[in-house]
Design a protein around this nucleic acid. Structure first.
Lengths: 227, 227
DNA sequence: GACATATCGATAATTTTTTATCTATTTAAT
DNA sequence: ATTAAATAGATAAAAAATTATCGATATGTC
């Protein structure tokens, strides 16, 4: 049966968070010249349930998988590309060129996933004017005009916790519609702005606690799935 | 009614990931001299459902909250401390003193959450022997003896993707029982070893996609809850 | 060409997590 | 002391996410 699927717009958040994993692994397969991949194989490599993988892929793939062989690698990559918008590079700005900010600013890995951080802002005058691997660092005052001129919608906050809300407010004022927040404080935003918090301590908490429980009982838990 | 609760060992993973958020906010309240906090207030500040907050706190708190006033701040902090093991500082090693590794190694914030990264390892001989804010960087060869001598159970992997599995294997061999993985590859580990993956691209995926959907439809989604 | 087998896709069942509702209770105000 | 308001806690309902099951169908093998 050759399904001609129109990927649905509505998709589980959990599915969404797994797609980059599939993409990453399938990319490697493609590089190795592999032509097709089964849900079972993917599941094994990524420590997931095969049915789960199938359901995920069904959501995004334009072509049905073939019984006995699985999914076509190239097509799958194209589909995920399209679905996630990896192909149409989203532009973003970053505020707070500290240690974490620098990583994000200079890590080319994000470009592969559709995010292009075009410039970093910082209030430190000694940083402003510098470049990090080609990325300019500008003073905060330039943010508004640049964001509006370029029509940027994504902002990344990597400032110390106590400045996060302030920076957030400025971003919103400039017209930023989605914020990736690395500060460990909840941000208050208007209805129409999205926030995704990146909380390392939370991850840590899950790990450390499971370890503690594990060493007292004998749990069977092994891999904690990603978020 | 004065419940004398013995916090259960089994707790939702999602609860676990929220506890650091509560802890962080409640700590601030304590610093401001606030004595009690209600689930409603917590929920408002953290963008959560009040009932959810109550359920979470019921899991960990040793004393019931008082109607009309809420929970006692000091006691709550102690309880979360105990529950998460924040008080008995877990020691960890880190392998891969690159940009991300450096952040983790030198960020004192983690100590607050019970994680003490005692030393970093790297295979680069130019890094070995150096110190970063008091944290030594040692060559890989020293890992096994140090881990065993100190009885360390947590390992953090911040090496490039293609070296992650190799490092992971070494850690397991040394006796590490829980791994916090910042490389974007799934790790293969024995039954009794825990892995928690930290995948920035996944978070990004969720954010970017929701933004895309939002701008085409008119969704009501606002804050994406944390993982 | 027939057959066995691995895989898909769909439906159903289960589990997990979140939200809603209702009652009892404690506190603050009158 | 009485009353009103706010809140916890428990139970139930709903929603979200994962896993199990089963028939259909290609694909490789004999």
């Amino acid at each position: 049966m050759s399904r001609q699927n129109t990927p649905s717009l509505v998709v589980m958040k959990s599915t969404l968070s797994r797609l980059p994993l599939y993409y990453s692994y399938i990319s490697r397969l493609e590089a190795e010249g592999v032509e097709s991949v089964s849900s079972v194989l993917l599941a094994q490599h990524l420590n997931l349930n095969p049915v789960l993988v199938r359901k995920d892929l069904a959501q995004v793939s334009s072509v049905a998988g073939h019984p006995r062989t699985g999914f076509e690698v190239k097509q799958l990559l194209v589909d995920i590309d399209n679905y996630m918008g990896y192909n149409k590079l989203d532009e973003a700005i970053l505020v707070g060129v500290g240690s974490m900010g620098r990583i994000l600013l200079t890590n080319s890995k994000f470009a592969k996933f559709g995010l292009n951080i075009v410039v970093g802002f910082d209030k430190d005058p000694y940083l402003c004017g510098l470049q990090l691997e080609g990325k300019h660092i500008l003073p905060m005052e330039k943010m508004e005009s640049l964001v509006q001129r370029m029509g940027i919608r994504i902002g990344i906050i990597t400032v110390p916790d106590d400045q996060a809300q302030d920076v957030c407010d400025q971003m919103v004022k400039c017209g930023i519609k989605a914020i990736w927040n690395f500060a460990f404080v909840p941000l208050k935003v208007p209805e129409d702005v999205l926030v995704k918090n990146e909380n390392l301590p939370s991850s840590l908490a899950v790990l450390a606690h499971n370890l503690a429980v594990k060493s007292s009982t004998t749990s069977k838990i092994n891999t904690l799935e990603d978020n």
